[in-house]
Computed example of a mutant assay.
Amino acid sequence: MSFSDARFDVNLSILFTELPLLERPAAAAAAGFDAVELWWPWPDNPTPDQAELDGLRSALDAAGTRLVGLNFYAGQLPGPDRGALSLPGTESERFRANIDVATDFAASVGCTALNALYGNRVEGTDPAVQDALALENLALAARAADRIGAILLIEALNAPESPLYPLVSAPAAVEVVDRVNAATGLDNARFLLDLYHLSMNGEDLPAVVDAYADRTGHVQIADNPGRGAPGTGTLPLADLLSQLRKAGYAGWTGLEYKPSAAGSAASFTWLS
């Protein structure tokens, strides 16, 4: 496997989680990384106190790590939730309350990619109602991202692990990307291409890369089966990343995989 020329960042919401949040950037730096990404770090709180935001900013600065990707509030993640923006009532209100908080924090640390998870279908609620709410909230998020020169990411998950999530294919996610761009006229919504999720859906990964590389704003990887590090499964990840680079993708690739049994720090031997 050769991963030459790829730019990797570590997802600190799945790796180094054995450590407190504020110790993870330094651990990533000690493992050789200068870029990291995060799911929303406070899953119970879309609007944390300024002291908590300042603490995370200081930890990133002290470690010399740049935050290159951040999720908006998405409910309990990891856990049963897969986003909040399409859920009528309290959860979508919490998402809206989080938009400026997350965007301002991203601006303060130079992060220019914000991921908005769509949210599960709600039993007894018309999907069309959820989709209309989602578009409204995604447009708000896209405008906030544009205010700081950032892109808004839309992600497809996988049906086996997220059976209530409606965006379980690359075309479904890209369709939402197109709707958001049409609604705002900003053209700053992009596809988050997660090779693990798409492989779990049985998609033709080279065909997805060919079709959507030009609309991809961020890439995430894990091997399949197992969602482990590259080389623990059967996905041709090096070939797919090479194909993405040849297609013009020059952005970051997030390492969003489960750590090895030996721990997070031992989960990067494949890079050598």
Rank of each mutant, 00 (worst) to 15 (best):
L15R: 01
V10K: 02
T17R: 14
P20D: 14
L198Q: 13
S169G: 08
A229Q: 14
D223I: 09
A222S: 13
G202S: 10
R227Q: 13
D34F: 03
L133P: 00
T90H: 12
V174L: 13
W252P: 00
L240G: 03
L244R: 02
N188E: 13
N120Y: 06
T47L: 02
T232I: 09
L198P: 00
A107F: 03
A106K: 04
Q243F: 02
A150S: 11
G202F: 10
F3K: 03
G226W: 12
V109H: 09
A207S: 15
A261D: 15
S108V: 07
P259M: 10
A211S: 15
W42I: 05
N120R: 14
S4G: 13
R24F: 06
D5L: 05
S199V: 00
L152I: 05
G79R: 09
G226E: 14
S272T: 14
D49R: 13
K246E: 15
A74K: 01
G89E: 10
L153W: 01
F8N: 06
R190W: 12
I154T: 04
A31D: 04
L85G: 03
V36G: 00
I154F: 03
V180H: 07
S199A: 15
E52W: 03
A207H: 14
E203L: 10
Q76T: 07
A159G: 06
R82Y: 06
R245Y: 02
R215E: 11
T90W: 07
D49V: 08
E161S: 14
P160I: 13
A173R: 02
D9I: 00
A134E: 04
A156F: 01
D187V: 09
T90N: 11
F3I: 08
S169A: 14
I148N: 01
D104Q: 14
F105G: 03
F268Q: 07
V180Y: 07
G124K: 10
P160W: 11
A170V: 11
L22I: 12
L114G: 00
A35S: 14
A6R: 01
L255A: 06
V219M: 08
A113Q: 11
L53I: 15
N115A: 12
L237Q: 04
S92Q: 12
S92L: 01
N181H: 03
G110Q: 09
